[in-house]
Structures are given as C-alpha cells and as structure tokens.
Amino acid sequence: MSWDTVFMIMPYLTVVILLSIGLYAVLFKKNLIKIIMGIAIMQNGTNLFLVSLAYRDGYYAPIFTGAESTEMVMPTPHALTLTSIVIGLATTALLLSFTMMIKKHYNSINTEDMRRCKE
C-alpha cells in the first residue's frame, strides 16, 4: 500500500472511529455528560466526513486568486460544515443546560434515575 492510498483512506477511517466512539457513548454510557460528549464526538466525525469529501488533490480554494475556475473545489460541503458546527454549538449548549436543570431537580445525572416518564 502506497502512502497516497493511506492518506486517502485515513480521514474516512478517522470518521468511522469517531462515529463509533460517539455512538458507543450514546448507547451504553449512563452519565449524561458522557452522552453529550459522545454526541459532540459524533458531530466532529460528521464534519470531518464532509470536509474530507470536499478535498480534491491539487485543486485550489474557491477564492478568486487567479486560478482557473475548473481548478477550484466546490465550496458546498464547506458551507455545510460551517453551518453544522454552528448548529452543533447550539444543540450542545441546550443539552448541557438541560443537564444542569436535571441535576437541580433530580440531584443526579444518571439516565437510570431520570425515568419518571415511563410506560
């Protein structure tokens, strides 16, 4: 395997690892903070996925610097990623503030204890 292939596969491999770690935390961790950390890791994995999709070897950033328009990468995935980062900040903040309130009301941040809504 040449180094080129390794560098091509590496980002996607990282995406898979990040998503798996995040999903594991969300599924099996009982601590709410850890669950939210898992979600944040999954967010980063998804963002990395979009950015690595957009990478084209030897192409230029889509800023008008004099390069031919055919040599520029499409900026759509980058726009997606930026939006996703902003949204991720909002959701993480909301989730953490919910956790604070859960701690206040239930005096615990364990998912085993927040089971008052059931059946």
Partner: peptide, 18 residues
C-alpha cells in the same frame, strides 16, 4: 423536572438524528 427530562430525551434523539 419531568418536562426537562422529556425535553432532554427528545433532544438527544433529535441531535443524533440530525
């Protein structure tokens, strides 16, 4: 407390869904 609990559960599902 129950309102926050319901919202948190829905939010985790929605965020992962997003």
């Amino acid at each position: 407390g129950r309102s926050v609990e319901a919202a948190l559960k829905y939010m985790v599902l929605s965020t992962v869904g997003g």
